[in-house]
């Protein structure tokens, strides 16, 4: 208990409460805050666009190599983020496997905001996919048949029945994914770098300020992240904190 509580309390004690506001309102802090919101939300959107179909296929379609796909898509959860970032660099970097091809069509990912989004999505998507896959696997297939009997084709069944039925898991998975994306550090700094206003997200900003002389800013923004994490926990408390 103390192991978890003491560091948080320490943050609160060290916080420059008197000038919290002015610390938050510096251009650098605001840039980091704004960028973090944009990239984490965009990463969540990417994860939703790719993760919902992936989770559905994993839960509902039998195909050879399914376990391999599951292993590969879950890997970022256990992979050290720095390694993830390095891997992204080797794939999409200027001299990466597909990087030059992307550059030819005008897409530059490394050291851009797009790269930060990609790094966050890479690390955070498994949280959404695993949560949603379990929900798709356990939701009542008979209700989908009932919808089919009422004239609904596959897409309408999915949109009007399947998706609404897994909505709680969809929300929970998306929130988890977003929280993970917001806190992303290793993959982002490796793949996207640390450019103020473009790739310097909150965690990167905290790290830089802590290294430099401006510990106050680091502490204040850390507290912002703590507050967001707490809010996520509270929002999802019915899923995890209630003992059945």
């Amino acid at each position: 208990m103390a192991l978890f509580a003491v560091p948080i309390i320490a943050l609160a004690i060290r916080a420059p409460w008197s000038n919290t506001w002015s610390t938050l309102r510096t251009g650098e802090s605001l840039d980091a805050l704004r960028l973090s919101l944009i990239t984490s939300l965009a990463a969540t959107a990417v994860a939703l666009a790719l993760g919902v179909p992936l989770a559905w296929v994993q839960a509902r379609v039998a195909y050879p190599g399914k376990r391999v796909v599951r292993a590969v898509t879950t890997l970022p959860m256990v992979l050290p983020p720095v390694v993830g970032g390095a891997a992204l660099l080797l794939a999409f970097g200027r001299r990466g496997v597909v990087g030059p091809a992307l550059a030819d069509v005008g897409v530059h990912l490394p050291f851009t905001t797009g790269g930060a989004i990609l790094a966050e999505a890479f690390v955070a998507m498994p949280f959404l996919v695993l949560t949603l896959e379990a929900a798709f696997a356990t939701s009542d297939r008979q209700l989908e048949e009932a919808a089919q009997m009422l004239g609904a084709g596959p897409w309408r069944v999915f949109r009007r029945v399947t998706l609404p039925l897994v909505r709680p898991s969809l929300v929970a998975g998306a929130v988890l994914c977003w929280a993970r994306a917001l806190g992303e550090f290793g993959a982002t700094i490796t793949f996207a770098g640390n450019l103020q206003g473009r790739t310097q997200t909150l965690p990167l900003f905290v790290y830089v300020k802590l290294q430099g002389a401006d510990a106050d800013a680091a502490v204040v923004l850390s507290l912002v992240l703590v507050a967001i994490s707490l809010a996520v926990l509270i929002a999802l408390r019915d899923r995890w904190l209630t003992v059945p």
């Binding site: 008979q142 009932a146 009422l150 004239g151 609904a152 029945v161 039925l165 909505r167």
Partner: peptide, 20 residues
């Protein structure tokens, strides 16, 4: 004909209403 276009009315054992 795919099931959704067979114009079959199906009443299931436990009603199977859409809960949402």
């Amino acid at each position: 004909v795919p099931p959704e276009r067979r114009r079959v009315g199906f009443m299931f054992q436990d009603g199977l209403l859409f809960p949402h």
